[in-house]
Structures are given as structure tokens and as C-alpha cells.
Amino acid sequence: MIDFSRIQKELQDCGRDNDSSGIRVSPKADDLTRLTGTIPGPIGTPYEGGTFQIDITMPEGYPFEPPKMQFSTKVWHPNISSQSGAICLDILKDQWSPALTLKTALVSIQALLSAPEPKDPQDAVVAEQYMKNYQVFVSTARYWTESFAKKSSLEEKVKKLVEMGFGEAQVRSAIESSGGDENLALEKLCSG
């Protein structure tokens, strides 16, 4: 049985002070078992300027079990799977404490973005790049942030795609059908 009253209160607490941290938690559905967390990329890192979305699934035993968290935004980070968005963070596994909250967990993920642990990697390719070729890692991470974590406005996307040579009406419908994802819309446009 999930402690919904606690989740409810956590959501209220997050809503109260999201201005200072930029961290938000909002329910995906009405049942409060699936939530979406949003963290801004830490300043001074390749993730600066990005806004990262995290899918949160509340387990039955919450808060005695950790919430399941996974990046839905693609991130280039040694401890985050570039494919699935799975996060390698101890407090989401064996070091979870019931005293932690969704907010503190998201803060920890934010801290993980600014302090990668390549010796305990989730994504071995990224970790190897981080260790062997840090500059390439930084530029890749920044590119991914620019590509996936920055919410450009609809008009910017339309303008970009129109500049590529597609018709504006075509572009708008492609963006709409791909859920606002610029790259997905481009794929659709290219495939016809």
C-alpha cells in the first residue's frame, strides 16, 4: 500500500519552493504512482542550460523502498545510461533511506550531474570517454544537452526545420505528431 498522503505532502513541499532550486515534481496521472521530476542542469557543467526530465515510479513500499527514477531526457553522463536513461546512484538503490524524499533524491541526481563517478559507471562507453578523453566527453555532453535538454520554443523548431527546406505546414504537423520532438519530426519529414 503506497503512502499517498506522504507523496501528496511531498508534492506540496516541492511546489512550495521550486523557485529556488528549479526542481519540480508533478504527477503524470491521478494515481500519484507515476510522477515526472524536472531538474535544471547544474551551472558550470556541460549540462548547464538544459532541463532534464526524470520519470518517477513509486513502488508499493515507498517510502521504505526507493522510488524508481530514470531519465526520460537523453543525457551523456558516465553514471546515466545513454540508451535507457537508467541512473546509477546509491541512494536510489541500497543507500535509500525513508528519510529521503523525492526532492532530495532529485537534488542528489542533480549533484550527480555535476560530479560524475566514472569508476562506478552505468554507461561504460561514456565512462571510458570521460576517463580517456575528457574534452570530447565535455563537448558530447554539451551537444546532447543542447539537442535533448533544451526546450526551444515551437517557433524556433519550425524555423529551424523550414530552413532545412521543408514546407512550414508540413513541419508543423510533423512536430505536432512527434510530440514536440524536433529530431523525431525531422526523421518523419525525411522519411516522407
Partner: peptide, 8 residues
């Protein structure tokens, strides 16, 4: 005043 786990 309230339990930090269950908020009761």
C-alpha cells in the same frame, strides 16, 4: 511534530 517518514 510529525514523523519524517510518514508525515503523521
Amino acid at each position: 511534530s510529525s514523523c519524517p517518514i510518514c508525515y503523521e
